[in-house]
């Protein structure tokens, strides 16, 4: 029953999102084929128009795409020289985006969790105030500016990391990391600040609870009280926001991808819009939407792990 409901949700979301996305593309003026094959002959253009069903209504075009997508056919990506299936490109750029998102989230949580816990525990001290100021500074730096700064100092001047391009982890794990470190840091910095503040405020509320005083009265060490007793009940908001972020980062790391020339989903989407690749765009948006929903489904499951009271509520 639960699975069925989730599946229905997934279906509705994918349809709504892709419908909206392709409607937006429809609004762009001009003949898409002129952008798709600028140097093609009139006959080639006419063929492409037929293939893309440009002479028919939007509803027909959309439902054709939907039918194809449902059977696993994501359509073609049109270039001057050749038509390659969208899936080819997707399998290249999706892992890049997923890895970047994963690293950035891990890095952000790695710093934000201890910082959030400590600043809540030491509320009002210099440590709290300093990290508060630092958090606002981190949020205030635009992504691209931070990216360029890191590129210049850590990449160009010190030469520690590579500044642009990508290598897959299968080919060369070390190079892969060298390429990924700077974009990861760039993305994570803002997240650290947000996550830390979120956890801090929930944690402060939890630390007022009776059961924390009771844990103290048992003689437990502060570390155990903070991390075993207080962290879990304080982490639901953090989990929700981090979950939403995962979805956003899969297709939304465009600026960082541009700055570091990472061939990820953001860059691909951007390209697809510019080149009027309607079918490719729809397919990619649909894949991202599906991933987004799957992630949030996983977050729902995690809730029940974190808080047993939700487990029981779900059962009944």
């Amino acid at each position: 029953m639960f699975i069925l409901k989730k599946f229905g949700q997934l279906l509705v979301t994918v349809i709504l999102v892709t419908l909206f996305a392709s409607l937006l593309l429809e609004l762009l003026p001009g003949d898409p084929t002129e952008v798709l094959i600028p140097s093609g002959s009139d006959q080639q253009r006419e063929e492409l128009r037929q293939e893309l069903k440009l002479d028919q209504s939007f509803a027909v075009r959309y439902s054709t795409w939907l039918g194809n997508f449902a059977t696993g056919d994501m359509g073609n990506y049109y270039t001057v020289s050749s038509d390659r299936p969208v899936s080819d490109r997707l399998w290249q750029s999706l892992p890049v985006s997923l890895l970047l998102m994963f690293y950035a989230q891990m890095l952000a949580l790695f710093f934000a969790i201890p910082l959030g816990v400590i600043t809540a525990y030491r509320k009002g001290t210099w440590l709290d105030r300093t990290s508060n100021t630092a958090a606002f500074a981190m949020l205030a730096i635009p992504n691209f500016a931070l990216g360029f700064l890191l590129q210049y100092y850590l990449g160009v001047k010190l030469g520690w990391f590579k500044t642009s391009g990508y290598a897959s982890p299968n080919e060369s794990p070390i190079e892969h990391l060298q390429y990924m470190i700077l974009p990861t840091i760039t993305l994570a910095v803002g997240q650290i600040a947000i996550y830390m503040r979120l956890l801090r405020s929930d944690m402060i509320a939890t630390l007022q609870q009776d059961f924390i005083l009771m844990a103290k009265a048992k003689g437990l060490k502060s570390k155990r009280i903070l991390f075993r007793h207080a962290l879990r009940p304080s982490s639901l908001t953090l989990l929700t926001v981090a979950g939403l972020n995962i979805g956003t980062l899969i297709g939304g790391a465009l600026i960082v991808e541009v700055v570091f020339a990472l061939p990820g989903m953001g860059l691909m989407l951007f390209e697809a819009i510019g080149r009027r690749q309607i079918v490719a765009f729809q397919s990619m948006v649909a894949v991202i939407a599906i991933l987004y929903i799957l992630v949030n489904f996983a977050v729902d499951l995690l809730y029940t792990v974190l808080d047993p009271r939700i487990r029981n509520a779900n059962k009944s």
């Binding site: 609870q209 009776d210 059961f211 005083l213 009771m214 844990a215 075993r228 007793h229 879990r232 009940p233 974190l306 808080d307 047993p308 009271r309």
Partner: peptide
């Protein structure tokens, strides 16, 4: 403690 509803950790 006074209130057993809040004195025990709800997630342990």
């Amino acid at each position: 403690f006074q209130d057993p509803m809040t004195a025990l950790n709800p997630v342990m």
